[in-house]
Design a protein around this nucleic acid. Structure first.
Lengths: 256, 256
DNA sequence: CTGAACTTACCACTGAGCGGGATTTGCTGG
DNA sequence: CCAGCAAATCCCGCTCAGTGGTAAGTTCAG
């Protein structure tokens, strides 16, 4: 960029993308200065870029001049194939699972060393879940995470252990040995569990969904009150996951 | 940009955003050259920018080297408040409406002079709908569109008429007079209809949802077989829309 | 009214971005 | 195995678009 650049080597593109990254669930509306601080980009530059993003629709401008993520960005993002087909095809199965259990149903795919929640179905009788569509869950402390670990390449387990296993709740698994053992169990039964390992008071069950190529595609699971017997719900989850795997295969045939 | 620019005056930011725009439902995976053609950006430049987008996760690279919209972009887009709260809060009401009617349920917000579909609920018994979450519908040929016209600022009607009323199906309203009359009807009854005006064989009903400030927030509707009597379904749609409006107000109080 | 915080505008400097063209890679048919 | 071709990748010299300090304008609480 111009000779004035405080941090040469950083591309305009990366600055733009960084400006999008500063928005989070907790901070969905930010002032210009807040955006500048969080992105470590000078205010003047932030101003110019934010305005371009807003003109295009990636950001929206509120009457009080704050910025937030715009509908246009959501619209383009909704084209992302990795979530789109899974969401569309999984809906009926998730709905069935919800009808059968009345618990929070969630489906997530691996992204980096986390699970990205792609769709949820929940009602008012279910435990209020902090998770939301577009949210991320850790691999070592959730049922969907353990399932993902069990059916992804072994390198993922190595990476996860290397990054450390943060203690998120009293019962979080924090030793690699225990995690590996748990994941081994998941691999053989195709069912993963987590007992208050992420949030006190909440347990979860999950089962793998496989794509048409036979490879792991997603983890489908339930989040329930810790007092609920998750093993009782496991067969339902397993059934739904198998049904969805079959649906993916059917749809793939139909397409070609 | 550099002195080599073929089209001076076009900013790097706008080029980047244009590269995202080239992806559509019909073209969700594109090669580098296709992206360059559609965006009218030279291949070398497209290459450099696409690579930066892919590094960050806005685009993904397939084994066959084609590009597609990435999960990271979807993730950030899912933060867009204008769709997020509406989606989360409307789900139960849309589900109820689906349970009661077994028809395609959709909710959309105004974006520019179109309706952006923000959420859908549909089953296999409903008419296969071409609409999808993230899709757009015209204002003059759909029930949700007419509702949007009826409860937005008058300028929107003027704009819509000025842009012309394309004939999308045999029964599409193509004269401003007829459209204004229909919209007037919608305003007084808080119910909008469309009879095979967008797609032959499909009709729709919709009703407005109002935000806590009393202003129009979204249009909630059904898409059904043309043979179905939409007036019979209208009360259910109206009830759901009222319920959702109340929910929005309730949630707004809760928040502050 | 005063002042602090935020937003918008200005502008001189210069290296980041541009893109034509060469090279490499990948694929197809012989 | 090897041309032949298209797509992808890389190279590099040119230069103006982007940068950001600074200043002026705006908003708002007290």
């Amino acid at each position: 960029m111009a000779g004035n650049a405080a941090e040469p080597g950083r591309s305009t593109a990366s600055r733009l993308l960084t400006l999008l990254e500063v928005f989070t669930v907790r901070n969905e509306e930010l002032t210009l200065v807040e955006m500048a601080q969080r992105s470590a980009i000078p205010v003047a530059t932030t101003y110019r870029l934010a305005r371009e993003l807003a003109t295009w629709g990636a950001l929206e401008r509120l009457p009080d001049r704050r910025y937030r993520v715009g509908l246009r960005l959501w619209e383009i993002g909704s084209l992302a194939p990795r979530q789109r087909y899974l969401r569309e095809l999984s809906r009926p199965y998730m709905q069935d699972l919800y009808d059968a259990t009345k618990e929070n149903v969630q489906i997530g795919v691996r992204d980096g060393n986390e699970v990205l929640i792609v769709e949820m179905v929940s009602g008012r009788s279910a435990i209020p879940s902090a998770t939301r569509v577009g949210g991320r869950l850790p691999l070592h402390a959730t049922a969907v995470g353990k399932v993902t670990l069990a059916f992804s390449e072994p390198e993922l387990m190595a990476l996860t252990v290397a990054e450390g296993l943060p203690k998120l709740a009293p019962r979080t698994i924090i030793t690699p040995g225990q995690l590996k053992q748990a994941v081994e169990q998941v691999r053989s039964t195709e069912l993963g569990f987590a007992y208050e390992e992420m949030t006190k008071g909440a347990s979860s069950v999950a089962s793998p969904v496989f794509g048409p190529d036979g490879r792991f595609a997603a983890a489908l699971g339930l989040v329930v009150h810790a007092s609920t017997d998750v093993t009782r719900l496991a067969p339902a989850v397993r059934t739904a996951a198998l049904g969805l795997s079959r649906e993916l295969a059917r749809w793939s045939n139909l397409k070609h």
